[in-house]
Design a protein around this nucleic acid. Sequence first.
DNA 1: AAAAATATAACGAACGTTCGATTTTTTTTA
DNA 2: TAAAAAAAATCGAACGTTCGTTATATTTTT
Lengths: 225, 225
Amino acid sequence: MNYAEFCKEIEMEKAAAFRNAVESNKGSIKIKKEKKLSENLSRIFDATIELANEKGFQAMSMRDLSSKASLSLGALYSYFSSKDELLEMIQGYSLAMVSVILTDSIKKETDSSKKLERAIRTHVYITEYMQPWFYFSYMEAKNMDRPAQKRAIEGELFTEKIFSDIIESAVSGKKPGDHDPVMTASLIKAMLQDWYLKRWKYRKRKIGPDQFADFLISFIRSSIM
Amino acid sequence: MNYAEFCKEIEMEKAAAFRNAVESNKGSIKIKKEKKLSENLSRIFDATIELANEKGFQAMSMRDLSSKASLSLGALYSYFSSKDELLEMIQGYSLAMVSVILTDSIKKETDSSKKLERAIRTHVYITEYMQPWFYFSYMEAKNMDRPAQKRAIEGELFTEKIFSDIIESAVSGKKPGDHDPVMTASLIKAMLQDWYLKRWKYRKRKIGPDQFADFLISFIRSSIM
DNA sequence: AAAAATATAACGAACGTTCGATTTTTTTTA
DNA sequence: TAAAAAAAATCGAACGTTCGTTATATTTTT
């Protein structure tokens, strides 16, 4: 599997996750027609991500959003009930994406070592594919209300658990006690996050997702094996 | 060296960095008396850090700051000329801290391997000591104006260069071509940043700075050696 | 007393949000 | 199929707040 292949397979799951995000916020959406809703809401999402990653979500005004999404102020509020809710819809979307994709992906391998490799690779690819979304979720987490913050933390721990479980079974019996799987998973997660948080750096150095995944895998492999 | 020892040695350098931060913004400070200035400005800094790490710098109002720092709105503006300038003063402060401390620290070792170990340990300790400051600088970087953003990026690359230089001389001749020092330094930096960005996680798991530094060093050593 | 520092009230600008009027789209009717 | 009616969606002005900042008056320190 490489990044190009990954992209082809992802489109459907992306659409499904979007429909799911819409479904769980149906209550505060005033738009009736499915087509209008998905067209305009995804344009609103894109515009929000773009503006927020430029100047921060708080600093982005509804008037900024209105002009970038080509909808009037009043119209915007037919798609969500408040600015905060908009933020949480986007968070829910990207949170669902990473956990679904990751869980599905590791089922395709049985060998622990291969499983770990695949998990890392998939994480790099999905965060490459939706980089602005993950950057947004990471940076705006502390501006969310308590329940949304809790969801963000649980999301982080969920993916970390995927890694620590794999490591546990991968290194069991090999070098007992030498490396704590939980700590190792923590560090892996940190390195994976660097990929979507510091894109400017890797772009400048002309390092693509495949290259990054390869390097990261060999770095980790030689450390825990 | 452990964290407790580190703390004893740091106080002087911290005070020097603070004086330096004041000095380079003297132009917009209306307070004449040295004592008043350092007392109140450091209280303003602390209050800003605390509020910004709670709800974000943008969301923090000058009225919030006024009440937390126990100074009237008008009085605040005798210590800086605008909210943005306050942000940049704080950024300059923590940026200067890490580079001075790190540069000084690695001079104390000659062996490359020891040098790397010491650099990592020192980075963990200084970011532990001033955790809220580094968290602040990281999270608010994208809300700063262009020149301040440039400074933040240069700061990141500066410390990364310190690591890649050491790695280069440490692994030269050992495993040629196997690990790109620049990429390795990038990953090390990512893991070091995790320490001050995810404090809630490490605190919950009862992992202190000494433990984290030990683990990180052994993780990296087994990977590049 | 003079100088330095603080407090208070007020400024215009910009914010998120709402609401009734208006336009666009869909459905019904002839 | 074309006109009329109903429904859905959009619009832009306006609301009440809150924001960063300032000018002036007052208090504290020298």
